[in-house]
Design a protein around this nucleic acid. Structure first.
Lengths: 130, 130
DNA sequence: GAGTTAAATAACTAGGTGGTTATATAGGAG
DNA sequence: CTCCTATATAACCACCTAGTTATTTAACTC
């Protein structure tokens, strides 16, 4: 049994499962309802398996309604992966800052070589402290 | 060749690779430097393979310094997966709202049954429209 | 050039994944 | 009880993955 993050990311690493998640984000649905859009590409047991993977990863949960199994997203299951990636969001935003700086230096060069005076483009981003 | 999201999530679905990412988030490093903490558990070619997976997923990039290959995080590579999960962050926060509502209803019950009057706890969250 | 260091590649293997078809379980409808 | 519907399970298969050891490539050092 791998850890939570491994299981979650593995579950997300499949387009069918991401499509299922997308479907369920619009509301709970029975297994057949979830499967319906995929039945041209794959069998129902294949979908059942995908649902099982999502369930084991904690991304969905099922409840019983007679013979039907109603699937719904378990928002809490996204928490860990979201937090993991958030660590690197910062990094990504900083790289945009560096891009800003780069663009500004290029602009400065352009201004010098063409002798045209233009206001700098702020790209709608605030200056970061330090 | 699978799509971007599939490749990214698959790359993240391995604890060794996540540890490598964590290491590189603290600064660029050569292949040997990256590998060093893992050499008790696995061989160097195994680490090389992990780095290749991360590179193909666009999460890291390598530059050449003599015999060394310097690895560094490619923050842009996190963009798509971050955006994907952000769709469900909202959902998660809404589920917290529902929890708030639930807690408030429980509180209301408590208040009724105990006849004690208390101010509602806002949990620092804004009321959502509709 | 000879030896050394850094990394990649090749060839192989065990176990996992994503699909299949066929069969089983279980609840509702007649 | 019988049949139908909804889902799960079993058994199987092709391919992929994560690791191994052995070999190769390439650049620096003497």
């Amino acid at each position: 049994m791998p850890d939570q993050l491994t299981e979650t990311f593995a579950a997300l690493a499949d387009p069918t499962r991401r499509a299922i998640i997308d479907r369920l984000s619009k509301g709970a649905a029975s297994v057949s309802d979830v499967a319906e859009p995929f039945l041209a590409e794959m069998s129902l047991p294949a979908v059942t398996k995908h649902l099982k993977v999502l369930e084991r990863a904690g991304l969905i949960s099922k409840s019983v309604d007679a013979q039907r199994r109603i699937c719904q997203l378990n928002p809490d299951g996204f928490k860990a992966s979201l937090q993991f990636l958030d660590q690197y969001r910062q990094l990504w935003e900083e790289s945009l800052d560096r891009l800003d700086v780069y663009i500004q230096s290029v602009m400065a060069e352009r201004k010098k070589s063409t002798s045209k005076k233009k206001k700098k483009a702020s790209h709608g981003r605030e200056k970061r402290s330090k």
